[in-house]
Amino acid sequence: MKRISLFIMTICLVIPLIGYDNNKQASLEGYKDSDIAAIVGDKEITIGELRFLNADQDVLSRIDDAVRVELMIQEAKKMNLDLSDKIDSMKKAVATTSLDDIEMEKSEREFIKSQARKLGMKTDENFKEYLEITSERSLYIMEYTQKAFRELVPFNGEELAVYNEELDEFLDELVNEQQNEIKILIK
């Protein structure tokens, strides 16, 4: 249970680092899950992948964030960071976890349940897959940011805000440096 809590906490720390624009909402009408929203290197990011991780009304506004996350994952892999033991441990922990095992806000629980309904999945099945995907991404992001940017140490609220701002600038530079590897197909 402690491992899962650490992953949930990591996810909560990472989400604000990515720069979410809540004002930009658009309809998915006319898009299929198989439509490619962006390409980062050789990785295609589809509308379906974005729908799995986000509420439908937020999908199109999260494309830039998904690009940044994918860039960090690819950069971490280029650094030959060996996360296989951590990923294996995380997958074992997720396999034995249910939604009822995790303490979370009511709104987060409702999001998981509504996503499961939307995707035609059982709630626990959706939760485990969501947790596995976001936890693995978080492992790569945390490892990359600690090696390429700077180590994440315990922060108070003000220090965390400064860290997030500086990391956001660092990621903007990464996106600019890798512009040739990025194609955003849906805006």
Results as ranks from 00 to 15, higher is better:
V94S: 12
D82A: 02
E143F: 11
L6C: 01
S98F: 01
K78D: 12
K91M: 12
S84A: 07
R117G: 08
I73G: 04
T96V: 06
E165H: 13
D100F: 00
A66F: 02
A76R: 00
L99W: 09
V162C: 05
E29Q: 13
Y130F: 14
V14H: 05
K183E: 11
L81T: 00
E181K: 06
L60H: 05
Y144N: 14
K147T: 15
R109W: 04
F111R: 01
M72T: 01
M72Q: 00
Q179L: 10
E29I: 04
K147Y: 15
D65M: 13
I11H: 15
S84M: 04
M90H: 09
L28P: 00
V153K: 11
N54S: 04
S135K: 10
Q146G: 09
K24D: 12
S34V: 03
R109C: 04
T123C: 07
M90A: 09
K128C: 13
Q115D: 04
E132T: 07
S27F: 06
V59K: 06
F111V: 08
I186L: 14
E105K: 07
L28V: 00
R3H: 10
C12N: 15
S107D: 12
R137C: 12
R68A: 12
R117D: 14
K128Y: 04
E169F: 03
T10A: 12
I18S: 11
I63W: 03
A66E: 03
E129A: 14
I87T: 02
T134C: 06
M104D: 13
N80D: 15
A37H: 11
Q74V: 01
Q178Y: 06
L185D: 08
L152C: 06
F149I: 09
Q57I: 07
M90F: 08
S89F: 00
D168F: 15
E143L: 03
A37D: 13
I11C: 08
K147M: 15
L83W: 00
K187W: 10
S84Y: 00
I8K: 01
